[in-house]
Amino acid sequence: MRIYKAKDYADMSRKAANIISAQVIIKPNSVLGLATGSSPIGAYRQLIEWYRKGDVDFRKVTSINLDEYRGLPQSDPQSYSYFMHQYFFDHVNVCPQNIHIPDGMAPDPQEECRRYDTLIQACGGIDLQLLGIGHNGHIGFNEPGEAFEKRTHCVSLSSSTIEANKRFFDNEESVPRQAYTMGMRSIMQAKQILLIVSGEEKAEIVKEAFCGPVTPQVPASALQLHNNVTLVGDQAALSLIPDGGIDE
């Protein structure tokens, strides 16, 4: 595992964007696994800036998003489809037919999960998977549990995840209780994983995930088993990582 310690959120975002842009420059038809939430917004803004300058071209890129709320249409401002268009897709030249996000309005959840797994395989797998980490160690919507979920699945959100996400909705009752998420196998099969994290409130879970045991109670801990993971975090988020505890 490589760790890049950033000064702050802006520096973290630039470092993450550098890694993503390098992937696209080296392989223009890269398959990018993309994430939502507050953590990647700065990286997306930096990528947009470099695109406008002509430094990076997304025309041949395929994007596969990690997750989506169940029950929200793409037009809903709180859907992850809406988020991705607002913060990234509408500002770069990713081809619309190459954008893939779980269908929150699919009538059959099991069929939608099968469709998404088949799609990932048809794309040849993911070249670079971008991730954040939740306060309880979830990645995507892979919540703490008794076993790692391997495939795309429809999950009931934990109370801590609902609490963390309610700031985006009018109230807690408006937060969807279920979501589709890419499974741990698809995530772990990505050729490269980029995890970004910022803020003192994430320091404890970062330490638990990367200095503790591998356990489905902390889903992000599985990343310890991947051979190509880069962790980019600001000083606050990495403050509890002991010196020498992880290869940098």
Rank of each mutant, 00 (worst) to 15 (best):
K166L: 12
S75R: 01
S79H: 00
S30G: 13
R14L: 11
T152E: 11
F168P: 01
N165K: 05
D234E: 03
D11F: 01
E143T: 05
A16T: 06
N227Y: 03
L231V: 13
Y4R: 10
L66V: 14
I26V: 14
Q178W: 05
Q23R: 15
I126F: 12
G140R: 04
S75G: 06
F148S: 05
L240F: 04
F169K: 00
T36A: 10
L223G: 09
I64A: 14
E200H: 11
K150W: 10
Q235C: 00
F89L: 07
S30P: 11
K191G: 15
Q97E: 15
R167N: 07
E111G: 05
Q78I: 00
K5W: 02
P242N: 03
I48N: 02
I101S: 03
G199L: 03
Y116K: 04
E208R: 07
E68T: 06
Y80G: 04
G233D: 02
G245H: 07
V155E: 01
A179N: 01
M1I: 12
T62W: 09
H138V: 08
P109Y: 02
S156L: 11
L194G: 13
E111A: 12
R2F: 09
D55N: 11
N227D: 14
T118Q: 14
A122V: 11
E112R: 07
R115N: 15
E143S: 04
P40W: 10
F88Q: 04
V206L: 02
P102Y: 05
A190W: 12
K15M: 14
F169N: 08
D67R: 06
V197M: 03
M1T: 14
L194F: 13
C113H: 02
P176G: 11
D76P: 03
